[in-house]
């Protein structure tokens, strides 16, 4: 039993964290809100150079051949810095899906490009009405019932939707099967879609942990600094208890997310339950932490001049994508009670 990351995994994570600290400061997140495209190709290329984008691509296709245990700590850092590009879609979902389920010709066509950063992929499973980052994607993987298709982005017609998180880019899409290549069909496609959904949910849960940790860090810094009645407001018990509740939520969501990573990487028989628990706890934690963070910041946190709202809004968006807490709680209930 060893419920911890290896030195190598932590070193990789720390390297990526340092990269985000330099390349994705809050000003960059603000730029992503204001810029029409909101994504810069050089950051993605640098992440590909570091091996992050090809992390889950097999070595035969130029990737790192690593798994969720290596990936999720890195996505936690992406969450901490509110990095907006489609790491979950490309790295956590599409690359493993193509690796496991695509015929050789399709895998060979797309996976090397994912690994070297030249192909950005996004995904739409059934019950997901909107697609992230269609405007910069080269490849869409989409589910229609018991079929999964690969569609080059030029054949996808998209209509922008506007998220409360101005750094996100969401689209409603349409496409024709004539322009699509079949990746997998039948029972295998349903299983692949379920596995893809679990991967997206766990990866999003990992981002929520990073977002929550950062909101706590920002709030601690603020309440230590901010004085009222002649003392730091962080000395007041009501403020302390808000923050203790926030820390409590994250502390018990975090191990659930690592357990989901382990379950995905090792093909656990209970992986659906493990992932749903992780996303349920991470979504709940982020929502509580966001509320506590805003309350403790007071009026300054209610402005868009302060950076906190970037993290609040990303938390709200991610808490409800890839299944919200209530959806995942019902899934766990089904697995526990109807067996």
């Amino acid at each position: 039993m060893q419920f911890a990351f290896t030195e190598d995994q932590l070193l990789f994570r720390d390297t990526v964290a340092e990269f985000f600290a330099n390349e994705c400061p809050p000003e960059k997140v603000r730029w992503s809100w204001d810029d029409a495209v909101g994504r810069d190709a050089s950051t993605w290329a640098a992440l590909a150079e570091m091996g992050v984008i090809g992390l889950t691509v097999p070595e035969a296709f130029g990737g790192m051949g690593m798994n969720e245990i290596d990936l999720l700590p890195i996505l936690t850092e992406a969450g901490r810095y509110a990095y907006p590009a489609p790491l979950v879609e490309t790295v956590a979902v599409v690359a493993p899906l193509l690796t496991e389920s695509a015929p050789a010709a399709i895998a060979e066509k797309w996976l090397p490009g994912i690994a070297d950063g030249s192909v950005i992929a996004t995904v739409q499973l059934d019950d997901q009405p909107f697609v992230n980052d269609m405007h910069i994607a080269n490849l869409l993987i989409a589910q229609r019932g018991d079929q999964l298709f690969a569609i080059p982005a030029e054949h996808v017609r998209s209509t922008p939707q506007v998220s409360v998180d101005g750094a996100r880019r969401l689209f409603s899409i349409e496409w024709d099967e004539a322009d699509a290549e079949l990746v997998v069909s039948g029972e295998a496609a349903l299983q692949a879609a379920n596995r893809a959904f679990d991967r997206g949910a766990a990866a999003t849960a990992a981002q929520l942990i990073g977002l929550s940790e950062q909101m706590i860090a920002m709030t601690v810094a603020y309440v230590v600094d901010r004085k009222q009645f002649g003392v730091p407001i962080g000395s007041f018990q009501a403020v302390k208890h808000h923050l203790a509740d926030a820390e409590l939520k994250v502390s018990f969501a975090r191990p659930a997310v690592w357990a989901a990573a382990y379950g995905l990487a090792n093909g656990s028989a209970d992986v659906d339950r493990e992932v749903s628990m992780a996303k349920c706890f991470a979504s709940d934690a982020a929502e509580v932490v966001a509320r506590k963070a805003l309350q403790n910041h007071g009026a300054i946190g209610y402005t868009t001049e302060h950076d906190l709202h970037f993290w609040l809004k990303r938390s709200w968006a991610l808490a409800s994508s890839w299944g919200d807490a209530a959806w995942h709680r019902r899934r766990v209930a089904h697995l526990l009670l109807d067996a």
Partner: peptide
């Protein structure tokens, strides 16, 4: 149903957190 699932998950989360602590 959801309350039962939530309690079960909280016990499980405590178990997982303990595995981290004991490591």
């Amino acid at each position: 149903r959801s309350d039962v699932a939530q309690s079960w998950m909280e016990a499980e989360a405590y178990r997982l957190a303990t595995l981290v602590d004991v490591t």
